[in-house]
């Protein structure tokens, strides 16, 4: 397969498993491009490598979701998101080219349906950096000239941390590293929302939309604004849960867009808690 053939293959791919030989083929083509000092081609090959990686992580996540291997699926979605963010500035995939629009959308929406709330975050101090392209040490006022995020010789430039002093571990709700999910002993996460989704989500490139809206909790229905609040705070409802939004819950709704609606099995409304 040459560059064009691989490009076409990835552009038209709609299956559940990618050809395994593509990464080797691409790395071979990249070597050739660099031998001919063709930086532009080397960069285009890097883009296809990234497209392949993003699709592969996404398909892994899809498979793990069907196998009810939820945490592994979560990690694969995270990888897909990160690799896609590296690609974004170098590659125009508007109009759902290479199906990356669908993947981008699905990754974000799937992440919202996981029950994870708390994560570990590693806190550390970094005192030295090196350039991933030339291995030179980078300091504040002295740089090797390579720019982080740019592509050189078909590789993306990043800073490599050296001399790291570890400070501690914190419990956070907004982690950058999403794989650091906390699994408390004796508690099991409730994945029933994803389980319901997967009943109908049979093809990884199927189109569906998640919408999240606020709804009033049943116990607050008909509650008087000037009456004591139902939560027993002693305050008026309008000064308490009505103000804080404690009287609302997130309602998740999924719409499948298909030609033959009969193939979709409707899922009835249900309340889902973080833990089983």
């Amino acid at each position: 397969m040459n560059f064009e053939e691989i490009n076409n293959y990835l552009q038209n791919f709609t299956g559940t498993e990618l050809r395994k030989d593509i990464p080797d083929l691409l790395s071979h083509l990249k070597k050739e491009a660099l031998d001919n000092s063709d930086q532009d081609l080397a960069k285009n090959i890097w883009c296809l490598e990234q497209v392949y990686i993003v699709i592969a992580h996404y398909l892994n996540a899809f498979r793990h979701l069907h196998e009810k291997d939820f945490f592994e699926a979560w990690c694969q979605l995270d990888r897909a998101e990160i690799e896609l963010s590296f690609l974004r500035r170098h590659f125009d995939y508007s109009g759902n080219k290479y199906n990356l629009g669908i993947i981008e959308n699905h990754v974000l929406q799937l992440q919202k349906m996981f029950p994870y709330q708390y994560f570990f975050s590693r806190e550390s101090v970094v005192k030295k950096w090196y350039c991933s392209i030339c291995n030179e040490e980078i300091s504040l006022r002295k740089s090797c000239g390579h720019k982080v995020g740019e592509i050189y010789n078909g590789e993306q430039c990043c800073r490599v941390a050296g001399d790291i002093e570890f400070l501690g571990i914190a419990l956070v709700t907004d982690p950058f590293d999403k794989y650091t999910v906390i699994f408390p002993k004796g508690l099991d996460y409730n994945y029933s929302m994803l389980e319901s989704l997967m009943v109908n989500f049979k093809d990884p490139f199927q189109i569906w939309e998640l919408s999240i809206t606020k709804k009033l909790k049943v116990e607050y229905e008909g509650a008087g604004k000037n009456r004591p609040c139902i939560c027993n705070s002693g305050k008026k409802y309008k000064m308490c849960c009505l103000k804080s939004g404690n009287d609302l819950y997130d309602h998740y709704h999924i719409n499948f867009f298909v030609d033959a609606p009969t193939t979709i099995i409707p899922v009835s409304e249900q309340f889902v808690h973080t833990w089983k």
Partner: peptide, 18 residues
Amino acid sequence: DICISDQDYHELELHADL
């Protein structure tokens, strides 16, 4: 400008999405 020497420049990584 930045008020630190290259030598003393340290980054605190909290790995939070903020």
